[in-house]
Design a protein around this nucleic acid. Structure first.
Lengths: 350, 350
DNA sequence: CTGAAAGCGCTAACAC
DNA sequence: GTGTTAGCGCTTTCAG
């Protein structure tokens, strides 16, 4: 905290006391009204409300937190290694969903960026300090310390994306609620679509293997193509350039391929560029299906991209809702994880 | 705030009282030690420290805030219209700088996304509620209500990027401290570099005219080329596609151009692609200079991009430092705005 | 249904 | 130097 030596703005905001006085009631009654007004007679409620308006009363959060032990804030924790997701429209959408839903619950979003193990101390202190009611955590890595910290301090948490290692309780039931889209099912559908188009040599450009979304999409590809060898899978990194590179490799190794399922739209856009540069016609020669349905990308490609849509913003909102459900449950039991459905969006590329 | 009907986790964290008891001192002394330990004799300091460790004591933030009236949190406010900047690596870098510097000051980052005028109420309540010690606000629009709100509640604020309309005090001195890079100077340097290379028909691909950074870069371009007509300026939108479009227009209208200064790297990357597709050699036929120096973009282009570097992360840190300076100043006077220098980074494209 | 009173955990005068 | 004592503004029993 900044050096608290000065206080340039010792503002005298009205207190509940003042409201009560003005309304001619006790502080207790004023408090009841401010918090919904249950069990207070109408006329009093109105007098208090008026006083609130006239005085421009706004409750003091710190005082309230001190007694209720709830602070109306949720931390969004992002691992620095994953921080690049920040520059992914995908993530900005999810944050937007989170922000919206949090607003609806009158809760604040505290952003915690973790940049390597040095920062875990800080985050630990922060969580241990009970500054937030809950946590939303994103795409953890294999050896991430975060889950352990979170478990240790029993901070209610919802994960975004299926965590690599699902913790399980004594009965073997997963103890880590998360929200993810049906990556595997969506991928399967995409590839089946390609098959139904009569394509026979269907390649896959995969995302980084340390992300479960990429792994799950590979699984979906293989579900639909049980006989396809791993040589038809090229590795990408979810960036446009990575997609372009992978496409070039694939073209070199398998000149006969007639379709490619790409694990996200950014890479698909790179792949399309390479195909265009090589004079390969899409979809006539090679059909292409992406994943994500980021309109800004999928509608701007040439030709427009057929892709698997996932409701990213909705997933963000869902994360918040799961968390709130838990926070408001008396039993302290967790809601189930949610796998949201995907949907194939047909455009021109396949 | 979520419905406070339940409290599944009524944890009994140790209080200062407990620490004091264990160390055999008064709460006051314990407090002094926890807050730096100035004016407490060594042996006592150590006993208290031990007690803190043994008990795993962590100060209760709410209680502290209640009395100090400081809450160790800073809001970062982003206008939804500008929310796309989220998906700009530029912004993610700035946020990172902010986050780092805030951590260094032990302050938290509260993210406030504004999505249209409906949300101003919420933000107003939040700021008025005194939940944060200060505000960092980004790229406001012409008719933005935010500055008014901020002024009304006298929340210490630093802006990121030169605000469109600089508020001035009675003496006409600007009252809005901001951090921005020297957009105009950087642009000027870029174009002068092109001139020094012997280029004579130098075009400009500009950013959206409602952003001061774009406007300032246009000014810099014109500084260096006082005789260039406005027809050599094409409008872009800071995206790759926009840059490609603008480049195509320019090529059609001015087949004789031999250089182009592009207002950011993303657009430059799109422009380079178009030039390549048309068989225009870079830099032989047309030299290209970008702006930003986002390595991920500028180093990946073909050829690598000569561009104007700005220290984005540093600017984020600076914003925090200005804010903290203000928060810790007894006089409540504002530090000056800061314009950070830019630097031409030569690669292969010019 | 309303009010009185007791704190929540901490800091900051003010004494000693 | 260190301890004592008031609160900070609010919620919440508990009486009435």
């Amino acid at each position: 905290m900044p050096d608290p030596t000065s206080d340039p703005q010792r503002d005298a905001r009205p207190t509940l006391e003042a409201v009560a006085a003005r309304a001619g009631v006790s502080r207790a009654t004023a408090s009841r009204v401010v918090n919904g007004g249950a069990g207070v007679r109408r006329p009093l409620v109105e007098r208090v409300r008026e006083a609130v308006d006239e005085l421009g009363y706004i409750p003091n959060h710190a005082a309230r937190t001190l007694v209720t032990r709830r602070n109306g804030a949720v931390a969004v924790i992002i691992d620095e290694p994953e921080f690049r997701i920040f520059s992914d429209p995908f993530f900005s959408r999810q944050i937007r969903g989170i922000s919206r839903e949090l607003n609806a619950h009158d809760a604040q979003l505290v952003l915690l960026l973790v940049e390597g193990s040095g920062d875990f101390d800080r985050v630990t202190r922060y969580l241990a300090g009970g500054h937030v009611d809950g946590v939303l955590a994103f795409s953890l890595h294999t050896d991430d310390e975060l889950p352990a910290i979170i478990r240790r301090f029993r901070v209610p948490t919802v994960y975004g994306g299926r965590p690599e290692h699902l913790a399980t309780d004594a009965e073997g039931a997963p103890q880590v609620p998360y929200v993810d889209c049906d990556n595997r099912g969506g991928a399967r559908e995409a590839v089946r679509h390609l098959v139904s188009l009569g394509r026979r040599r269907i390649a896959h450009i995969a995302g980084p293997r340390d992300q479960t979304s990429a792994l799950d999409r590979i699984d979906g590809y293989q579900d639909a193509l049980p006989d396809a060898g791993p040589e038809l899978i090229a590795d990408g990194d979810f960036t446009t350039e990575g997609g372009a590179r992978a496409m070039a490799e694939l073209l070199a190794a398998h000149p006969d391929l007639d379709a490619v399922f790409v694990a996200n739209d950014m890479m698909a856009s790179g792949a399309l560029r390479v195909l265009r540069e090589r004079g390969v016609r899409v979809p006539e020669d090679v059909a292409v299906v992406g994943f994500d349905d980021m309109e800004s990308v999928a509608e701007a490609t040439e030709p427009p991209l057929t892709t698997v849509r996932q409701d990213v913003e909705g997933m963000g909102r869902l994360m918040v809702r799961l968390l709130m459900e838990r926070l408001n449950s008396d039993t302290g039991t967790w809601p189930e994880s949610v796998i949201t459905p995907t949907e194939l969006v047909r455009r021109a590329s396949a």
